[in-house]
Amino acid sequence: MSSRPLVHTAAEPVADLEHVSRVYRMGQTDVRALDDFSFTFRQGEYWAVMGSSGSGKSTLLNILGCLDRPNSGTYRVRGEDTQGLSDDDLSELRSRHLGFVFQNYNLLPQLNVLENILVPIFYQDVPPPGIEERAKELARRVGLGTRLEHRPTELSGGQQQRVAIARALINDPALILADEATGNLDSTTAQEILALLDELHAEGKTIVLVTHEPEVGKRAQHLLRLKDGRIEEVRHNRAPSGGPSSSNTAGTGGAG
């Protein structure tokens, strides 16, 4: 830990975007899904990302998750520039440091609950010791300790999403990315999932959650609102540790 001149945040940057653009070429026109986007997600923060459909939320999450590469700009994960990384390196990074939760759960139908939780570990050359125990522990934690042998088709949507969260946690990720994780769930079940995310946040996990629901946006610690691939608003619902609570409207984008 080096001492550095800080303004209001002491936490380490986990995901750092600098002038990132992601452009889709559609025939004659360019769609700028992300447009000169600069932002820093720090250790332990819980961000909700909102914005109208097509504003670039999923694109942002894909880049944060190293599933997609920017056309220009730099993206750093825990200080490491992803620019020069190979496809294999990015896979390695996902397998070790990132956790994904999808809207439609995306469990593998041929695997049971325990196996599904272990999939990210499957792609690490040397599985960490005691990982099966950890997987069972996580299954218990999300309330599925008695369903280890069940297939996804034998579970409800909420249960499947909890398996997906356990799977996202198995590699103790630096960043959890959730794209409309509650989008397919009824409100009660959604509340359970959100409570689980709150818990994870309380434990110090860094979470970026894309959502369409304003209550969910309010519930998160911070809110990032996008419009046309740019930042429309950054709002701090609860004070980040060591910083003032504020609400600003930043058309220019960038918080770092």
Binding site: D88, S95, N171
Partner: peptide
């Protein structure tokens, strides 16, 4: 295809 996408997202390399 979707399964492939999931596996890639969860860290599968091309060779996997």
């Amino acid at each position: 295809t979707r399964e492939i996408g999931i596996r890639r997202a969860l860290g599968a390399k091309r060779r996997h």
